[in-house]
Amino acid sequence: MSHPAPYPVRLADEITRQLSQLTDHLSQLPPPQAAQVIARVLAPDTGVLGGVTRLVSTGSVFAKDQAERGALPPEVWLALGRASNELHDITLALDEHQATLKHVGTQPPTTAAKPPAPAPLVVRRRR
């Protein structure tokens, strides 16, 4: 007879399931609501991305301890440490866009005769 998964494993599975649901909902939301969701997800202190960053950082501390004991290869600790650092940098880079996302999320639907001009998304470098 198999043993049920411990609570933290079930919690990780449930969070993963809910993130999948959130992704499905996000793809169907109108732009203002999608911007609100994205702003909350990216909030560095209270959002999902900040939470995942802290989780990976905690995993890195665990992996370092286990690598020092010989239970894990050092490469695991190095990979988690690198991932933690990169996620932290990404969180900082996205933080500067929080105000814009919040602003878009609180704007009433526009009924202007002329829609906003799309912005070019490709930046070309001079060669």
Rank of each mutant, 00 (worst) to 15 (best):
G70N: 06
Q98E: 11
P109G: 03
K64W: 02
R124D: 13
K102L: 09
L92T: 08
L78R: 08
H25S: 08
S27A: 15
K64M: 03
L42N: 11
G51Q: 12
E86V: 14
A67K: 05
V104S: 03
K102A: 11
P4R: 12
Q18A: 12
D65V: 10
H97A: 15
R40Y: 00
A93W: 11
T110P: 01
V37I: 14
L11Y: 04
A67P: 02
Q28E: 10
A93D: 14
P32V: 04
R54Y: 00
A12L: 15
G59F: 00
P109L: 13
P120I: 01
T111I: 06
A34D: 06
Q107G: 06
H25N: 07
P44I: 06
L92N: 12
F62I: 15
L80F: 15
R40C: 01
P108C: 03
R126K: 12
T91W: 02
V104P: 00
A117E: 11
L87M: 15
V76C: 05
A99G: 04
R17T: 11
Q28M: 09
D89P: 00
R10M: 12
D13H: 11
D13K: 11
A67H: 03
R127M: 06
T100C: 02
Q98N: 07
G105K: 08
V56E: 00
V122F: 09
L92E: 09
V122G: 01
V9Y: 00
F62C: 05
P31F: 06
R17S: 13
L101G: 01
R82M: 10
A83P: 03
T100S: 08
T91S: 15
V61W: 03
P4M: 09
H103W: 12
A71G: 05
A67Y: 02
W77F: 12
K64S: 05
R126S: 15
S20L: 05
I38W: 00
D95Q: 13
T16C: 07
A71F: 10
Q98Y: 04
R17H: 13
S57P: 00
D24T: 11
A34V: 09
D65Q: 12
K102S: 07
I38D: 00
T91I: 01
I90K: 07
V104Q: 09
A63Q: 05
L121I: 04
R127P: 14
A12T: 14
G70A: 08
H25A: 13
A112V: 07
L26P: 01
G81N: 12
I38R: 01
D89K: 09
P8K: 08
A83N: 14
S60E: 06
P6Q: 03
P31E: 05
S57N: 10
E68C: 10
L87R: 13
T100D: 08
